[in-house]
Each structure stands twice: as structure tokens, then as C-alpha cells.
């Protein structure tokens, strides 16, 4: 979540993500996922809140990201759990595009 101390961190160029695509981004000892769905960009924590499996190998179903290990589901717009076995929400982050560059607010 953005705080007063948050800053915009450069991730990649916008063409790194195709439509209905997602990518991993590591920064400051933490790991995140950026998504592009229906032209909109989203970002969440990278690790599933259930057993810390990385979501980069998961399945994107509309606005739902599904964990590859136990198939726990989260809505990438809100980070909220969308199906067991997960029961803790993911943190979400703001994303912006400047020119052809993609930034995440951390």
C-alpha cells in the first residue's frame, strides 16, 4: 500500500507486458506481480498469502490470479481472496505509465 514515504519505481517498458499478461518484479528484498488486463495495469504482492508460493507461475483468469501450487485465488484489482484455500488478502499497488515506461508505487 502507498504511504507518505512511497515512491514510484521504474519496472520496465510498457511493451514488456502483453494483453492478459503478467510479470514478476523484484525490488528491495520484496517481490511483486504486474498485470495487464483489458488495457488496465495492476500490481500485487508476488507471494501467495497461503503458503508463500510465487504467483508468477499462476493462472490469470480475467481479473483473478490463481496460485500455481494450491489454486488459491485473488482479485488483482483489490487483492481480496476470491476462493480457497487462501484467506488473507494480497497487498495491491498503484501502477502508472510515463511515455513508454512502467512504474509501480512502493
Amino acid at each position: 500500500m502507498a504511504t507518505q514515504d512511497s515512491e514510484w519505481i521504474f519496472v520496465d517498458t510498457v511493451d514488456a507486458l502483453d494483453e492478459e499478461d503478467f510479470m514478476r518484479f523484484d525490488h528491495g528484498g520484496e517481490t511483486y506481480i504486474l498485470y495487464k488486463v483489458k488495457g488496465e495495469m495492476f500490481a500485487t504482492d508476488g507471494l501467495c498469502t497461503h503458503e508463500a508460493q510465487h504467483l508468477e507461475d499462476g493462472v490469470l483468469i480475467g481479473h483473478i490470479i490463481e496460485c500455481p501450487l494450491h489454486q488459491g485465488r485473488f482479485d488483482i484489482r483489490s487483492g481480496k481472496c476470491a476462493g480457497g484455500p487462501v484467506c488473507e488478502h494480497l497487498n495491491t499497488y498503484r501502477v502508472k505509465i510515463e511515455g513508454d515506461k512502467l512504474f509501480i508505487e512502493l
Binding site: 523484484d26 528484498g29 520484496e30 517481490t31 507471494l47 503458503e51 508463500a52 508460493q53
Partner: peptide, 8 residues
Amino acid sequence: SLPQAKIL
């Protein structure tokens, strides 16, 4: 180099 304790 990520915190390994988080990854089972």
C-alpha cells in the same frame, strides 16, 4: 537473493 524464509 529474496528472503528465503518466505519460500517453503
